[in-house]
């Protein structure tokens, strides 16, 4: 039996616009986390273009990750890949790379749920053990907590995701994605200069929320108010809604930790709101570090080690990608 620190899992993430490869030891050390992002020339992610991008950069990112980790391909124990949820063409590109590597190296393949991976990397990096997690990104907005073998969904968006809400509004307002400055970050900077709260829809239904009406209303208000004020009001409304829903899950589950993960976790205003409710419920609040907040290969690699150690591998003929693989359909036997 090899030492945990000298067993490695390589993880491939390709569910949306980021192509990432990470390398994790079975002991939980991240040795490499490399990625390359597809940036659309205009509008949102074009799935076929994103997939084309991923195929083009796969080889380079793989070499970078292995060389950063100082690990040779033949030393790997298993290959993990993001099997879903996500965009079909993007996911398939990553899955193809993963299958090729696993067959060539004759090592097991481990299909990982992308949402589970966001939660697991957050726990690994922050030391949270049993949190209520708000996972907010461009494609997902959900409040989950572990209960009897799975991460259960206690609240989620009824329509679009929080990151998507910000992106769509940003594009309506004429903002563009730049390298190193996602639209969400641009909105955050503008919002910091806003002062006036413009009334917008606030839609919380039970533990779920709806954001699509908010985008429409905020976009319409650009006619009447400054961009800064609308950005400020959009953030205040949207973040208040997700915070209220997270607080409801916290009160319901009576857990003592709150974890913020996913791309929108980078937003300081959202962090501040969640810190307030955590304190009110005597819960410890943690935020996943920035490099693990957005989609990344390291989270897939780390979750791959957890699954592999519990005997969960994915035969090639069952490695078809699952575009709508819900987090609450996945057994997580590594949690006691």
């Amino acid at each position: 039996m090899k030492n945990l620190e000298s067993k490695y899992c390589l993880g491939i993430e390709s569910s949306a616009d980021d192509f990432g490869i990470g390398l994790a030891t079975f002991g939980g050390e991240i040795l490499a986390n490399k990625s390359d992002s597809y940036i659309p020339t205009e509008g949102g992610i074009h799935p076929r273009e994103a997939a084309r991008h991923h195929a083009e950069v796969a080889d380079t990112v793989l070499q970078e990750a292995l060389s950063k980790a100082g690990v040779k391909a033949k030393e790997l124990t298993c290959i993990a890949f993001s099997q879903g949820p996500g965009l079909g063409p993007s996911l398939r590109t990553g899955a193809t790379v993963a299958r090729a590597l696993a067959s060539y190296l004759k090592i097991p393949l481990v299909g990982v749920n992308h949402s589970v991976a966001h939660i697991e990397i957050g726990k690994l990096q922050t030391g949270a053990t049993d949190p209520v997690t708000l996972y907010a990104s461009g494609g997902n907005t959900m409040v989950t907590a572990y209960e009897s073998g799975r991460y259960r969904v206690f609240g989620e968006t009824l329509d679009i995701a929080l990151g998507n809400c910000l992106d769509v509004f940003g594009r309506e307002a004429g903002l563009k994605t730049k390298k190193g400055l996602p639209i969400g970050a641009a909105i955050e900077q503008l919002a910091a200069k806003g002062e006036k709260l413009v009334p917008l829809p606030y839609v919380v239904k039970g533990m779920d929320l709806s954001l699509s009406g908010l985008v429409t209303a905020a976009s319409a208000q650009l006619q009447n108010h400054s961009l800064e004020d609308v950005c400020f009001s959009l953030q205040e409304h949207a973040f208040s809604m997700v915070t209220e829903v997270t607080e409801r899950a916290l009160a319901h589950t009576e857990k003592k930790q709150v974890l913020l993960t996913g791309g929108v976790a980078a937003n300081k205003r959202l962090q501040a709101m969640l810190a307030v409710i955590s304190a009110e419920h005597d819960a410890q609040f943690s935020v996943v570090p920035l490099q693990y907040a957005t989609d990344n290969g390291a989270m897939i690699a780390w979750t791959g080690t957890l699954a592999y150690r519990h005997g969960l591998t994915t035969p090639i003929d069952e490695s078809i990608v699952k575009l709508r693989w819900r987090v609450d359909k996945v057994d997580v036997p590594w949690i006691q």
């Binding site: 879903g84 949820p85 079909g88 494609g139 997902n140 989620e156 968006t157 009824l158 329509d159 995701a161 699952k322 575009l323 709508r324 693989w325 819900r326 359909k329």
Partner: peptide
């Protein structure tokens, strides 16, 4: 219909 509208539901039509 509401469930299919939600994100990542297996029943949702591609």
């Amino acid at each position: 219909e509401i469930e299919r509208r939600g994100r990542y539901v297996e029943e949702r039509k591609q």
